[in-house]
């Protein structure tokens, strides 16, 4: 196994996630695409960790931190989406233009 195969797969998944974030209108689906991007980042971190192979295992430990922060982000993000839906009865991101100049 070479390291670049994992990095290219991570880049591909990340760019698919970028496409999803840009093109989706429903806020829940935008969050799903962000999860895809975070999964791609985790693949990169663990692949680099296996490539460098240090005693501190920094790649795997920081992948665990990314997973934890992603879980926190989903909890807060969905709470915000539910709140917006309750106030405006819509979860479409392009209808939330209150702060648009």
């Amino acid at each position: 196994m070479i390291v670049n195969q994992f990095l290219v797969l991570g880049a591909l998944l990340f760019s698919i996630g970028v496409y999803g974030v840009l093109v989706r209108r429903n806020a829940v689906l935008v969050l799903l695409s962000i999860e895809l991007m975070l999964a791609a980042v985790n693949i990169n971190l663990v692949a680099f960790g296996a490539f460098v192979d240090d005693a501190a295992a920094a790649g795997q430990v920081f992948a665990l931190f990314v997973i934890t922060v992603a879980a926190a982000e989903v909890g807060i993000g969905l709470a915000i989406v539910v709140l917006i839906f309750r106030n405006r009865s819509s979860a479409n991101v392009d209808e939330l233009d209150l702060m648009k100049w």
Binding site: M1, N42, I43, V46, G49, Q60, A63, L64
Partner: peptide, 10 residues
């Protein structure tokens, strides 16, 4: 993929 890379806990 993490199992393939030897990161079982992750």
């Amino acid at each position: 993929l993490f199992v393939m890379l030897g990161a079982e806990f992750v």
